[in-house]
């Protein structure tokens, strides 16, 4: 089923939703948000596109196989825990780089890396399920 309205909206919403999902992920550092919910919104963007244009073209837009994203996400998550090993702390201890830009302090830490990993895992896992379900039904 092709719907012109849905297709137009989906095309416009895709970049917006991805941007919003990244915003949610970064916001999760100190406020409600985080990798999990960000990943769900990101997956929502691609599944909306898949509903409008079919899973094949959604896979084309995503470029990478969702399972690759899943694997990469897990890898990033594990590695973020191992940063602490290099510096001699216990596994998963947060490690921070602090920049001073003008008045503001800018904290960059392994927690962010962990969140990025979670984001990728959620996007990968959700899309693997949704794409294969849609492909089976068509």
């Amino acid at each position: 089923m092709k719907s012109l309205i849905l297709q137009t909206i989906a095309r416009l919403l895709l970049p917006l939703m991805i941007l919003f999902s990244v915003f949610l992920m970064l916001r999760g550092h100190n406020e409600p948000g985080g990798g999990f919910i960000g990943g769900l919104v990101g997956a929502g963007a691609f599944s909306l596109y898949a509903v409008a244009f079919g899973p094949a073209s959604a896979r084309g837009v995503l470029r990478a196989d969702p399972r690759t994203l899943l694997g990469l996400g897990l890898l990033v998550t594990v590695l973020s825990g191992f940063f602490a090993m290099v510096l001699g702390d216990a596994f998963l201890t947060g490690q921070w780089l602090i920049f001073h830009i003008g008045e503001a302090d800018f904290h960059l830490g392994t927690a962010l890396l962990f969140d990025i990993g979670v984001y990728l895992v959620v996007v990968g896992a959700t899309l693997t399920v949704i794409f294969s379900l849609e492909e089976e039904s068509t």
């Binding site: 399972r67 694997g71 897990l74």
Partner: peptide, 20 residues
């Protein structure tokens, strides 16, 4: 003791590499 993490991290690592 770092050793104790490894029985969890090693299978996870190889599992992930196998997915990739």
């Amino acid at each position: 003791d770092w050793l104790l993490v490894l029985p969890l991290a090693i299978p996870l690592f190889f599992g992930v590499v196998s997915i990739l």
